[in-house]
Amino acid sequence: MTDATGKKIEFILILLALMVLVLLSKKLEKYASGEIVKLAEKEKKSQVIVLDAGHGGSDPGKIGVHEEKEKEINLEIALKVEKMLKKKKIKVIMTRTDDQMLDDQSDAGQKVRDLRERVRKINGEKPVFAVSIHQNSYPDAGIHGAQVFYYRHSAESEQAAKTMQEALRAADIGNTRQAKANDTYYLLKRTEVPIIIVECGFLSNPEEAKKLTTPEYQDDVAKAIVNGIVTCMEK
Results as ranks from 00 to 15, higher is better:
residue 8 K to G: 00
residue 11 F to W: 02
residue 14 I to L: 13
residue 15 L to W: 09
residue 26 K to Q: 09
residue 27 K to T: 00
residue 30 K to E: 11
residue 32 A to E: 05
residue 32 A to I: 12
residue 39 L to K: 13
residue 41 E to V: 12
residue 41 E to F: 04
residue 43 E to H: 08
residue 47 Q to S: 14
residue 50 V to Q: 03
residue 53 A to T: 03
residue 53 A to E: 09
residue 54 G to C: 12
residue 54 G to R: 09
residue 55 H to F: 09
residue 60 P to R: 07
residue 61 G to K: 07
residue 61 G to C: 10
residue 62 K to H: 09
residue 62 K to D: 07
residue 63 I to G: 05
residue 69 K to S: 14
residue 76 E to S: 15
residue 77 I to L: 09
residue 80 K to F: 05
residue 86 K to S: 12
residue 90 I to A: 00
residue 95 T to G: 11
residue 95 T to M: 12
residue 95 T to V: 10
residue 98 D to Q: 04
residue 99 D to I: 00
residue 101 M to W: 00
residue 103 D to S: 09
residue 103 D to T: 09
residue 103 D to I: 06
residue 105 Q to D: 11
residue 105 Q to W: 06
residue 107 D to K: 07
residue 109 G to M: 13
residue 110 Q to A: 13
residue 110 Q to T: 08
residue 111 K to N: 15
residue 111 K to A: 06
residue 113 R to L: 15
residue 113 R to M: 14
residue 115 L to T: 04
residue 115 L to S: 03
residue 119 V to I: 02
residue 121 K to R: 11
residue 121 K to A: 02
residue 121 K to W: 01
residue 130 A to R: 04
residue 131 V to K: 10
residue 131 V to Q: 04
residue 131 V to G: 12
residue 138 Y to E: 08
residue 138 Y to L: 09
residue 140 D to C: 03
residue 143 I to E: 01
residue 145 G to H: 03
residue 149 F to K: 13
residue 153 H to T: 11
residue 156 E to Q: 13
residue 158 E to S: 04
residue 158 E to V: 06
residue 159 Q to Y: 11
residue 162 K to M: 05
residue 164 M to L: 12
residue 167 A to R: 02
residue 169 R to P: 01
residue 169 R to T: 01
residue 171 A to L: 09
residue 172 D to I: 02
residue 174 G to H: 05
residue 176 T to D: 08
residue 177 R to T: 08
residue 179 A to P: 04
residue 188 L to K: 05
residue 192 E to H: 05
residue 193 V to D: 01
residue 195 I to E: 05
residue 200 C to M: 01
residue 203 L to P: 05
residue 204 S to P: 07
residue 204 S to R: 08
residue 205 N to A: 09
residue 207 E to G: 00
residue 208 E to G: 03
residue 208 E to Q: 12
residue 209 A to W: 10
residue 215 P to R: 03
residue 217 Y to S: 08
residue 226 V to S: 08
residue 230 V to M: 15
